[in-house]
Write a protein that binds this DNA or RNA. Structure first.
Lengths: 250, 250
DNA sequence: CCACCATAATGGTCAGACCATTTTATTTAT
DNA sequence: ATAAATAAAATGGTCTGACCATTATGGTGG
């Protein structure tokens, strides 16, 4: 077995001036010398600063924009602004993977099952009194939405989303939080597609949420995980059924 | 609560010719009209095809390159080639998140714990006879490495990695497979840092691998998950200790 | 037959001009 | 005086055309 390159060096792609520019600006951002909201100088100044042509500078800016590190706005007062990057880049990359068929929606559903379970478990371990109050408040909203029947369905879904998001926050792990958001953003369209209103469905979901919040409140991680997984699993089963039907039609 | 934009429209950034070019080439790739390995025409031709200036075209190519969809090579016979994109983009984005402090290495370790457990569980459910033979073969290699003591440590780590990779493949979920790779690539440097050789460590790890493969062989998903989690957990504990020590020194 | 070198193909960079969008200041009409 | 219309300025977006740098290929001389 060949000795591995454990240092993980780059291949030193020679002579790409714009990459050098990318590197310098990226470093400044990541080292905190530039903060989200800060504006970079206009292109014609940067051009001088780095001593490159405008075209080269713009290629660098394109890369930084694509990386999610800066945002570029037009017109007077516009320019390049350092961005508070969230999970958008991850979301976009996963979307590409889905569209190219390398990842299936079923894969995502299955992934989500385990992930939501873990998140719920961690949240149960780590929830503060305030966190739990916040959850109960959201739960109340969900219950009142559920009592409005079909009228409240859209709002119910929104509150459901808010609860899951809050649980992910409480779990206190940024990677889980980002992952949950990426998965959610990439599954949302299917969500809408597979979750038409039905009175039994809103009832089931309400029960699930109540049980989840209760499990977290009583600091029962395993129970919270079990419920969250069951909740996602039920959705996955529906999704698989619909997918199978869609397959059959083709 | 405001009605949400469930269609998830883009903000229609006006007049960015290069984005139109990006879109067209990206669609061609994702719709399979261009396959990995295919070469795009040289820039001076594309320039004509899309009726844009070379600078604009090159900005488009920069974006596609950054998205991981194409790879650009220099010199005669060079040019833009459609890429078989893997998890590299995700890996890079996560690396940025780590460096900017939005995700900690501890977060990743914790994430990995749940993920490896799930992967092991799915693998136990889905392993074919061939898969198990392959695992046992790798396990044999690991054992023989472990018997070489300190000399075999590096090779043992490589085989360990290969086993985890194989298990992820067996799990049959592309998203888990990519996630495992992304996490691994971003934790590798710490891995090397926290895993110096010791005879007890190589012994423990060997036992873990044996138990893992056995659990998968006997189709015991829960046991496989338990062992994989324990394995990762032990590593995380060491990592936390070292991190705490490093903190203390600062 | 091999080493070296010229040539061509292709991406990388530069320079300078002009266009398009947006904010801000100024003017003008009510 | 206020509000609407308009002009001006700042800034990113695009175009043209040239030249530089890297690499594969094929020829040339030993």
């Amino acid at each position: 077995m060949q000795k591995k390159n454990r240092a993980n060096f780059q291949k030193a792609k020679k002579s790409r001036v714009f990459q050098d520019v990318v590197g310098q600006i990226q470093d400044a951002i990541l080292d905190g010398k530039l903060s989200p909201g800060d504006k970079l100088p206009p292109e014609r100044e940067l051009q001088d600063t780095f001593n490159v042509s405008r075209g080269t500078l713009r290629e660098a800016l394109r890369v930084l924009e694509q990386k999610g590190l800066i945002e570029i706005r037009l017109g007077t007062g516009g320019g390049s602004m350092v961005r508070e990057a969230g999970a958008e880049q991850l979301t976009e990359t996963l979307a590409l993977m889905i569209r190219s068929g390398r990842v299936s929606v079923l894969d995502i559903g299955e992934f989500r099952e385990g992930m939501e379970g873990r998140i719920a478990s961690l949240a149960a371990d780590r929830a503060s009194e305030d966190d739990i109050r916040k959850l109960e408040e959201l739960l109340n909203q969900a219950v009142s939405c559920s009592e409005r029947g079909k009228d409240g369905w859209e709002d119910f879904l929104d509150v459901d989303e808010a609860i899951h998001k809050e649980v992910a926050r409480i779990a206190g792990n940024a990677l889980y939080r980002y992952s949950a958001q990426v998965v959610h953003d990439n599954i949302r369209s299917y969500y809408d597609q597979y979750l038409e209103f039905s009175s039994s469905r809103i009832h089931e979901n309400r029960i699930d949420l109540e049980q989840l919040v209760n499990a977290i409140k009583s600091r029962n991680g395993e129970e919270a995980a079990r419920i969250a997984e069951k909740h996602v699993h039920a959705f996955n089963v529906r999704m698989r059924e619909k997918e199978a039907m869609a397959q059959g039609k083709n």
